[in-house]
Simulated scan of single mutants.
Amino acid sequence: MRRITTDPEAFDAFDALYRAHVDAVTRFLARRIDDPHTVADLVAEVFVAALDSSHTYRAERGGELAWLYGVARNILSAERRRAFKWARLTARISGSRLLEPDDLARMEEKIDAESAGRRALQAMAGLPKSERAVLELVAIDQLTVAEAAAALGIRQGTARVRLHRARRGLSLVMEGTS
């Protein structure tokens, strides 16, 4: 990926990146957030952040989607921190970001389609955060171990160990609930 922010011709490349991966990024966020307005905002933030940080992309560390998932995880973490702080400061969040009715309906369909993914994430909630992150990226988001490692900024060997532990831990949790 070329440096989009400094190369005017690279805007076409960014457009292609957006079109190729917007649905995957939307699904990634819809599995983790159930509000269509927030999902739409975060998808936009991911691609703005990708535009701003396009110079950090390294193809040898993983594909574009793995990189975008890493960006999305950072955006999601920042959003959760912001929401937690806001909830502490106010009893009720007022105002709503508006979407057109058709956009809202499409976003609700995507969120509904990802309900199984949200249930799986809830089952994984008891796992340590580092193990859960690798498992989510590999099992739910369909990244390779190498791509998950790149998205998390860890070594492949570390990712493999965490994935093994997460699968073993999830197996124990699932046995306990059956």
Rank of each mutant, 00 (worst) to 15 (best):
R88G: 12
K129A: 10
T26L: 07
G70P: 03
H55V: 09
R31E: 07
S77W: 14
Q156D: 11
L17H: 10
A120V: 09
A20Q: 07
D103K: 00
N74S: 14
T177G: 02
E108F: 01
R58F: 05
R31Y: 05
R106A: 15
G95S: 07
V48E: 08
W67L: 06
S115C: 11
I75V: 15
A123Y: 13
G62F: 08
R61G: 01
R132K: 13
Q156T: 14
L98Q: 04
R61S: 07
R61Y: 08
L135T: 04
Y69I: 05
I4W: 15
T6Q: 04
T56S: 10
T144L: 01
F84Y: 15
P128M: 04
Y18T: 13
A146D: 08
L89R: 15
A87N: 15
D7H: 06
I75R: 02
L143S: 06
F14L: 10
R165C: 09
E79I: 01
H164L: 09
H164P: 01
E79T: 08
T5W: 11
G153P: 08
R2Q: 07
T90G: 09
W86Y: 15
T56Q: 12
R106T: 12
R155E: 14
G169I: 06
D141P: 00
E175I: 11
F47Q: 00
V22W: 04
D35G: 06
G153H: 07
E131Y: 04
R132S: 10
D35W: 04
L172P: 00
T6F: 05
V39G: 03
T26V: 07
D112T: 12
R168H: 08
H164T: 13
P8K: 07
A44Y: 01
S94N: 10
E114T: 11
